[in-house]
Design a protein around this nucleic acid. Sequence first.
DNA 1: AATGAATGAGGGTTCATTCAT
DNA 2: TATGAATGAACCCTCATTCAT
Lengths: 214, 214, 214, 214
Amino acid sequence: MKKASTARRGRHASAWKSVVLSREQQFSLKRAALLREAGRAFSLRGYHNTSLEDVAKTLDVTKAALYYYVKNKQEILFECHMLSLDFGDEAMKYCEENGKTGLEKILLLVDKYVRTITSEMGSFAVLGEYYALEPHNKAIVGKRRDKFDRAFRKLIAEGLSDGTVRAVDPKLTVFFFMGSINWMTRWFTPEGSASGEEIARQLVDLVKGALRAR
Amino acid sequence: MKKASTARRGRHASAWKSVVLSREQQFSLKRAALLREAGRAFSLRGYHNTSLEDVAKTLDVTKAALYYYVKNKQEILFECHMLSLDFGDEAMKYCEENGKTGLEKILLLVDKYVRTITSEMGSFAVLGEYYALEPHNKAIVGKRRDKFDRAFRKLIAEGLSDGTVRAVDPKLTVFFFMGSINWMTRWFTPEGSASGEEIARQLVDLVKGALRAR
Amino acid sequence: MKKASTARRGRHASAWKSVVLSREQQFSLKRAALLREAGRAFSLRGYHNTSLEDVAKTLDVTKAALYYYVKNKQEILFECHMLSLDFGDEAMKYCEENGKTGLEKILLLVDKYVRTITSEMGSFAVLGEYYALEPHNKAIVGKRRDKFDRAFRKLIAEGLSDGTVRAVDPKLTVFFFMGSINWMTRWFTPEGSASGEEIARQLVDLVKGALRAR
Amino acid sequence: MKKASTARRGRHASAWKSVVLSREQQFSLKRAALLREAGRAFSLRGYHNTSLEDVAKTLDVTKAALYYYVKNKQEILFECHMLSLDFGDEAMKYCEENGKTGLEKILLLVDKYVRTITSEMGSFAVLGEYYALEPHNKAIVGKRRDKFDRAFRKLIAEGLSDGTVRAVDPKLTVFFFMGSINWMTRWFTPEGSASGEEIARQLVDLVKGALRAR
DNA sequence: AATGAATGAGGGTTCATTCAT
DNA sequence: TATGAATGAACCCTCATTCAT
């Protein structure tokens, strides 16, 4: 009896929720789903290699319906980039708040970022499609990315000052590590042999080995 | 005497030849230029974002003229991939012949490969456009790339055996380093602040730090 | 009573339906029109000499709109062939059911087929464009055509057995007659001096004269 | 010895001939070969389905070389049509000179024409590609064809007058027979089971049966 | 809120044709 | 005489985008 009632409640709850969700909430949820699926496809097959028809099919709607949620294909790409950058900023904020030394912060950053990228949410880390952005958007994204890169370099500088990081070129080092991370979207799949956690742990280990001063 | 004269004539002949190129040579040169320019564009702006018209324009010919040298746009992409893989194989061969220990070989490999990629010749390292290959070609390229990855892993295993490399996951480590390298095509330009040599040196340094056993 | 009322309603419904066509019906009608116009053009000017632009213009739509109804230019040709073969099969079935002797069946076949070809419906009898079919489709069409030819020959054989047809080579005879018929698409126009009925009557008369045993 | 000398003479003769042929003769021979091969291809695969590259390949020269012998692809088609019409006229002249009655002439015409079409020389009876002629040429060819058709009809009329042909519609009858003949280029091959002679005999037999008055 | 239908722009490809050599 | 190389026009096809319903 209890079971039945729970079940009923469960059913009611979800049924209710789908009714009770405000229009704006529904809209947001659907839009988010659209961005997620599109981003996943973009980062897997590339922007120009993914048609809106493809995206629509994974959402079980028609191509035309997408235009209710976004203005453009370009807007999708732009938003995906922004979300992806949000992830970076979050990881950056997290590591700055929780790390003590420069090295510690760097390792926290890598760990957090890789975990995000490999989680379901982060599957649309489409950083690879930078060139597909139209000039205006490219400028915005570029600026934010530069900012992120500079913050990353600052962490390295911090490590150099506090003696936890050995002498390396901050700029190139950031490029190298970001390459390792961004390239993941090309080979990582949730079904693969290595889990996101494992990958994060291994990369952290590698970075530690590469940067740690002795 | 006769020999000498022949040799002299031979030298003259080839000197002449190098000025007045044979038709086949001209053909090869033009084809190579086509591949180079196309590859450069592909790796900069993406395969689908680069029209043959664009490529033709940089070569100062008509779109149609390209079809005298290649069968397809797809063939261009495929050939670029193969050339890029050739570079990898050369680097691999080089390091296996000249390195002693596992670690040494790895460092030689990274050094050689990065130098190639950043040299003028390597401007068409379009490894990013894997998904744009049609199935048949994708299979071929995929196989070769896997082979390269396996050889790379083997170097790591070798280092593990001979004690020059510390305990790391070979598979993931290869992915990480290849990411660093492949990602270079996204930010490297000959005009940039860092030269190819410098980049190679820095990455080698980083890899050494990351892998070296103590 | 209920029945009657239902029937009445039914009639109303269908009357209504025939005015306000369902989407599927509209789609089918438009597709049929597309095939008809394309087929007419193909058989008049040839497949390769007819651009989709031409076809689109006669339908007052854009070239691109055609792709909503067919996959390919090739699909258009193929479907026209199949429709044309359907006509042949229908005529064959008709003559086998309604004719008594071999000769009678042959004459019925010729009569029916010619009437169909010359009617509005049959305007896309593009049998001449066989070579423009791509291999796969050519095989399918070829098989069906062979089947028709064999059935035709069988009618002649039947006439030979029952004594209504004089000694002729079945295979060549079929080729000759099919030539007369297929060639019609080259000179027949609805505006011409001879009507479809007249043509059918004359050809039947000729065939009778040519085949009848005495 | 005699043998050797003959051989030598033979060799000389042909070698000589190829030297001694006047430029104009060589030109004419090659041009004729070009027309023959092109015509063969046109009537087999259609005008637009046959590229000059194809034609050039069968002659073992380059596409560009063809332009030394003809002005145009269109000129090739036109000349083929004219040659084909020449064959018709020859057959017509032959039958008029050698036949007595109307029917006799008709049968001679059919016999001669079919034999020509099926012989090596006549393989380029490309009458099917009428629509591919450009307006000016189409007018010329159309006129000659009409003239031939009228002459054919006249033979029928003659047969009607002299009582050797039964009552048929001259115009349609001509169309029917020409269809049988023209359609042959679609199915006849020298390697096929029926020889040209056999086909001619059978068609003559059929025509006789169809037209003969009793 | 979503769909069917249509469009326009752009890209890849073919091919007849030209021309210097 | 014949070739290699190149061109321009035309064509098929895809796809992001729009709009009435």
